[in-house]
Design a protein around this nucleic acid. Sequence first.
RNA 1: GCGCGGGUAGCUUAGUCGGUUGGAGCACCCGGCUGAUAACCGGGAGGUCGCAGGUUCAAGUCCUGCCUCGCGCACCA
Length: 1095
Amino acid sequence: MARPHSAGELDAVALETALLETWKQENAFRASIDSNGGGAPFIFLEGPPTANGKPGIHHVVARAYKDLVCRWKTMEGFRVERKGGWDTHGLPVEIEVQKRMDLMSNEAIEAYGMDNFNQACRDSVWTYESAWREMTERMAYWVDLDNPYVTLDNNYVESCWWAMKQMFDKGLLYRGHKVLPYCPQTGTSYSSHEVALGYKEVEEPSVYVKFKLIDDDASILAWTTTPWTLPGNVGLAVGPEVTYVRVRITEQAENWIGAGGASDGEEVILAKELMKDVLRHNVEIIEEFPGSSLVGRSYEPLFPDAVPRGESTTAWTVLEADWVTTTDGTGVVHTAVMYGEDDYNLGMAAGLPAYHTVGMDGAFLAGTHPQLDGRYVKECDQTVIELLSAKGGSNGKGPESGLLYREKSYLHDYPHCWRTDHPLLYYAMDSWFVRMTAVKERLLEFNDGVEWAPDWVGEGRFGEWLRNVKDWAISRERYWGTPLPVWRDDEGNMKCIGSIAELQSEVAKAVAAGFENPECPDDVDLHRPVVDGYTLVSDHGKPMHREPFVMDCWFDSGCAPFAQWHHPFEGEETFDASFPVDYICEGVDQTRGWFYTLLAVSTTVFDQPAYKRCLSLGLILDAEGKKMSKSRGNIVDPWDHFNREGADATRWYMVTAGAPWNPLKFDSNGVRETYAKMFLTLWNVYKFHADYAALDGFDPEQSTSDVASRSSLDRWILSRLATTANNYHADFKQWNFHKACRDLEEFIVNDVSNWYVRRSRRRLWDDAETSDKVACQHTLHEILTTVCRLVAPVSPFMVDVIHRNLTGKTVHQAAWPLGIPGSLDGATADEWDEEAAAATANLPPQDVSLEATMALVRELAEVGRRIRVEAGRRQRLPCAQGWIVSGPDMVEFHEILAEELNVESIEVESDLDRFQQIELAPNFRALAPKARSEVNAVAGEIKNAEDPTALLASIQAGTCEILGVAIEEGDVEVRRIEREGFAASTVTIGQGDDAQQISLVLDMNDTPDLLSKGLARDITRRIQAMRKDLNLAIEATIDLEIWTKDAPEMFEQDRQWIVTETRAAAAVFHSESSGAPSNSENFEVDGTTVWFTVQ
RNA sequence: GCGCGGGUAGCUUAGUCGGUUGGAGCACCCGGCUGAUAACCGGGAGGUCGCAGGUUCAAGUCCUGCCUCGCGCACCA
């Protein structure tokens, strides 16, 4: 039973907030899931946000797309559980706390106490939880926030430990070095996004240094912008393919600036290409050779005591490296193993000694050089330059002129600590790695199986990343995070702990072996510093201490598919049934983040992919096209729109503004537009229906109306509805949500509101219960309920209110109009029986030719208005006659057309020549292959034919030849042009061979009858406007008095028409102007002046 | 530097296999319609389709180079 009640004026915000309350009371989210209790599961995985920042509009976008797909799939009959999640570990949290508590270095944190600090982090994580919850609820993102997974929970951490142990046992976890940007002031290394915060352009000394070859009286030149790394030099890298030259100084340079120099006759080696850029002296080339022939040559260390040779056989020799380029420098790269990533990798591969010359405090270690020891490296540039410039250089074995060839100030972007503003040092740190390179093939294979939207992110960006995969540096020298569960003794023996139980048993073993340990209860906090407090025992009886790292917080979120269920300790069935997941959706910036770590963890732990479908969203930009970010301060507050246009409009705007994967320029004005156009229109269509339905006591279940017997207007809009719904669904399946929604909006505004409802208004004014009125009401009911179901996944509020009022049921448990495949036997989210699914669809019949005919009718209506404007004939002055020339049969629409065009009658005329002549246009597609280069000449002849009718006749007869080309019918298009004297216009429908010319001709002659009618209409319109101004009720009557001047005669029937239309109880008509009171309204039309009063 | 994606009217954008007149919406101007609308209809104004070459009878569309914006990666020796 559902008798709609009348709809009020729209207040979107009030509507939405009231509905939220209803949902809460009904537990609508849960109910929508449970309504599909038997449906096949569709597994969604929420990428956990961090709740220590305020949510912005960009978060709303991601959540809108997550919600959209989940709601859509639910309506399709799938069971879509949606567990919320929070990312709670990691550097952003620590930084937030450090800033707030002014603990800007590790020393400060440790002085404050790690336990206190971590407690502060734990608290800080929830700072904006309520803001997130409010935003999430207000925008109607349906996700279970009452039972979320939280990465700091012991259960979650325990699952992460378990995963880590799987990797460890497979030999995929190892300890090594990683060169990281490091700030000696704060004692921390930085991840790349932090480094990006601190790039500054600085001018620094760069130096060209001579490396004196042993057993050869020549030096190799190398360049560096970081002179402080020179004491750590242990190798030189050359490009094997690069051409080098050995040159002899022949003449001193003029105007030498700065330190350095070379003596006449001195010989140096460098890349040939860079000679001009590097050398200031005049030189002669002695020899030319590829880099490969330099490989293996030994040279004198610059600072002989700085680095011990150890067991290295390759120290201070020339090595080859394919990354060496000749874009700058000398084509020879100075290699200080511990202070550059390439240097480190090369050093490890070539067996160079890996010794630090710089301490963690940023000062040179003792023994480097007496003048450098203990000094902060960045202050030693000048000293290093001076030492090298001295006679023989700092090692005393260089040439007379010293080891410095040249210094040059160098302008470049260099990373600085974003907290202290000090330059960062690239510094080799102890680090743990996951051997991703070992599973590269599997990663690529799994990625191939993922359905990416858009596909180029998967194939391109992500595929590229995987093809170049590097081992994952997974440890962080931080405090707040999942601790690395590896214990190690000083001999390098290691144990990886995979559960609390294992930790307890190892602690017990250690205690038994005589190592003191605190209690290790079942609920031991799996965080620092608690876990650091346990000393385990190695198999050799040695004490083992925990490696003092926490894990990259991306590892945490990468574990979400199983850690959210506390797998493998609990929820085994839940996990088995939900892995890999069907759908994830996040911003494209997660490509190297969550998209990657999910796959990385699932591949290394389970040898399986983590997800089957991934929607990668474009970045959200502000109105100026700048990325929205906290640091820029250009984040749009979602509440600005929630409180103005509402969440429906905000969500619809986001989806229609562009493809989900394209960057979205968020334009506040666009939200307003969406509100005015889409939602206001939809509401008014609904209001129109609901008001009359309420008035008439219409109940869709209490009456029936066979579609086949309804008017062509009804059958047309229902067909359009079916077509639109089908396209909508097809676009959804292709992830083209923007196209789907744009088309649907177009349908609602254009077809439903501006044509169907406009043309149907009078049908509902009838007081009698006619079958036509009932048909119209059923049609409106069907349109609205179907549209509601289509809109519901995208904008869930207004359509639910409408749906509830029209059907008594929530739209969020309604079936998808195109079928409910998820509820069919044997369905899975991956594949289902298309035919069986379609059989459950619920849409009215389509009639393609009816749609085409109506499109033509509407076009002709527009054409008619254009004709009037061009002919200067006012809209309300009727025409006696209109002719439709050629075109399909549309007799059933002649009445509509006559009304739209304001003509007395419409007739079909087949004699084209009565109104028109023809014009020929070349059809290039057909003509070009025949005419080739003559095509333009031939086309010209056709276009400019003096007698096109005759030309057409000869073409049709097959006797036409132009410039040697035989012209056939398909080679030309026939267009029709109105003859002089007719007010007419021609439209073309169809394309190519099917193109058809249809003309509308209007009779412009006036008769007394027409003039009378026209005047009556103008007067009526003015009076109606007056009624509206006076705020008269629709049924209120008026007293009317009218005076006219220079008016055509108005017949009695037209006077009567005015009286009826305006609900005049009394009316007096004067055919002169005298007597019109001064306060009367007046207007002039076509030379006639009219005064009137309304009382 | 490499990769990916953009650059179309003042703004937001559509544009399929290359087809000769590049569509919409917002805003603006004129006119009309209105017994639901912040709506609608007709007309007007507004485009070097980022730039330059090339292929072609024909290029917004294909190719090459460049400029520019965004993102990512790498580098910053």
